Amino acid sequence: MAGPGEPVYVTVSALDAGHLTLPERLFVTDADPDKRSTVPSLSFLIQHPSSPASRPQRSVTNLVFDLGVKRDITGYTPAQQEHIAQRQPVTTDPDCAASLRYGAGGSTDSGKVLLDPQRDIDVVILSHVHWDHVGTPSDFGSAAFAVGSGTLDLLARGAGPLYPAELFNADEIPASRTVEFPAVPRRAAGYTEPQHTPAAPDALARLPASARHWSWKPLADAFPSTLDFFGDGSLLIIDTPGHLYGHVNLLARVAEHRYVYLGGDCCHDPRILRGERGIAEYDDGRGGTRSVHVHTAEARRALDDIAKFVKARGGRDQVEVVVAHDGEWRERNRTRFWPGRL
Rank of each mutant, 00 (worst) to 15 (best):
S41F: 01
G75Y: 05
I73R: 14
L63I: 11
D72N: 15
I73Y: 07
F44T: 05
Q81P: 02
L63Y: 05
S50Y: 08
P33Q: 03
V69Y: 06
L45C: 08
Y76V: 00
D72L: 07
T38I: 00
P33M: 02
P78R: 02
L42H: 12
S50I: 04
Q81K: 12
R71Q: 15
F27T: 02
L63G: 03
D72W: 09
V39C: 01
R25E: 04
R71N: 12
P33W: 03
D30Q: 08
R36L: 01
F44E: 04
T29Q: 01
A31D: 03
Q47E: 14
S37T: 14
V69M: 14
H48L: 05
H48Y: 14
A31C: 02
V60S: 12
V39W: 02
K70F: 00
I73G: 07
R55N: 14
V69W: 08
S59H: 15
P78F: 01
D72P: 00
T74H: 08
S37R: 12
T77V: 04
D32T: 03
P23M: 01
P56I: 05
V28G: 01
T61G: 08
K35T: 04
P49K: 11
L67F: 10
P56S: 13
H48D: 10
A31Y: 03
F44M: 09
E82R: 11
Q81E: 10
I73H: 11
T61M: 11
R25G: 03
S43T: 07
P49N: 12
F65H: 10
T38M: 07
D66M: 10
K70S: 15
K35L: 12
N62W: 05
P49A: 11
D66C: 13
E24M: 01
L63M: 14
P56C: 09
V64C: 05
G68A: 09
A53K: 10
I46E: 08
I73D: 10
P33K: 03
T74K: 12
V39S: 04
D66T: 14
D30K: 05
N62L: 02
D72F: 10
I46W: 09
L67N: 13
L42N: 11
S37D: 12
E82T: 03
P56R: 14
F27M: 03
D30P: 00
E24Y: 00
R55L: 10
T74M: 06
L67W: 07
T29M: 01
R58W: 10
T29A: 01
G75A: 10
N62I: 02
V28N: 01
K35E: 10
P40A: 06
H48E: 08
P52A: 11
S59F: 08
F65Q: 08
Q57K: 14
D32H: 02
L45A: 09
P40D: 06
A53L: 10
E24I: 01
Q47C: 13
P40H: 07
H83D: 07
R55V: 07
A53E: 14
A31N: 04
Q57H: 15
S43H: 09
S37G: 00
E24T: 02
S59P: 06
S59E: 15
S54Y: 06
R71V: 04
N62Y: 07
V39D: 03
P49S: 10
